[in-house]
Write a protein that binds this DNA or RNA. Sequence first.
DNA 1: TTCATGGTTCGATCCTAATAGAACCATTCA
DNA 2: TGAATGGTTCTATTAGGATCGAACCATGAA
Lengths: 226, 226
Amino acid sequence: MKEGPDISRIAALVGDPARGNMLNALMDGRALTAGELAVEAGITKQTASSHLARLMDGRLIEREIQGRHHYYRLAGREVAALLEALMRVADASGTGRRTRTGPKDAAMRKARICYDHLAGDMGVALFDRMMADGWLMEAGGKLAVSPHGWGKLAVIGLSPASLPKSNRPECRTCLDWSVRRHHLAGSTGKLILDQLLELGWAQRVPATRVIDFSASGEQRFQSLIS
Amino acid sequence: MKEGPDISRIAALVGDPARGNMLNALMDGRALTAGELAVEAGITKQTASSHLARLMDGRLIEREIQGRHHYYRLAGREVAALLEALMRVADASGTGRRTRTGPKDAAMRKARICYDHLAGDMGVALFDRMMADGWLMEAGGKLAVSPHGWGKLAVIGLSPASLPKSNRPECRTCLDWSVRRHHLAGSTGKLILDQLLELGWAQRVPATRVIDFSASGEQRFQSLIS
DNA sequence: TTCATGGTTCGATCCTAATAGAACCATTCA
DNA sequence: TGAATGGTTCTATTAGGATCGAACCATGAA
């Protein structure tokens, strides 16, 4: 009776601290090399290689080989969503025992990248506004940006033509780890974040998932959603 | 460097097959005794007791003691959501290697209980209809049943007075493991499922999470959402 | 070719944690 | 009170897997 449900097979993969660190490092959607991931996890490259092979086997990550560099990335949104769900439970579980919320932690709660879209307080605030003001609409069982919504998004230079041609859902919701409410994911979520960075309203803090808004950028963002 | 992110601490708890089986058994929202969980996991009661202590420590489950019986249940919706997220990834990961979808599996995909609300094809179909036909509305940043929605729900004997007095969110969405789209959770989700069982349109299949609709029950359910 | 760099494979070691036997505690019932 | 049942604690055993040293393979540069 060593079979068990498949959920344990997956959970055990994330359950090792070294692999957890690796997956965490990949949460910003970028692809990292095996060596970088080894450093990230604080282990030697041999050990890292073994872990990466197991993660590949479990289809949690994907590999892209370029020359002698092997780049690894998360296998998809489902995996990112799983990691956020874990953080949410870990956050609830950890309260009361060691809630040492450092300064970087505060920045993470305010605004961060979640796979490829905006999360944290500001991500949730944006989504709230979109829902309350009818930026989104129901179309064929799926959620999409309404004409009114596109009118608003035109302010930051976006139009329906900006959407990539793919079968990826236009709008999705993603449950926020820190705020515990939904924010916007899907291709529109990615589109908006990309544009915020493009406009210089905010920038990524290297080696973290933090999104740092400039003073004027945050001001403009606030006026956009008010 | 044996610290690692907290996500690994939680994932490792689910990562053991015995604990995974236990949590899986608790996914139907009921509370089970330590002995029942031991049988469910195929281990002795001593071992089960040790596992349950660890799950308690990680705040994944809660205990309620009644006489000599110790009842365990999932600690909350977040935990149930985590397990569904795991199933979703496990499902995607497992395809291609052993997709032995048995008959019970088909029933699970059609209709099942997810913590305390309806999931599967029928749960998603209900939620789609609710969204498309304006059964829900935005109120103070939260989702709630609209007057029109209550009119529809009156058909199965529900009214706003049916809602329990609690601070639990009235409506929430839960990402469906099998269909990979949202279905309705929250107190309204529980309310509806309870009523469907009460009316005899469907019943639970013992020892599983399957919800079995009667022929006439399914027919009436379909006419409700069409 | 030769050397340096980035990754993987192999083998040996070591440590954690899952497991069950035995004993113990608490509650219910006769 | 004593017997039966449900759970927990303690202990020793055992197995799986995380780890790294060493060797090996592939790519790119000199």
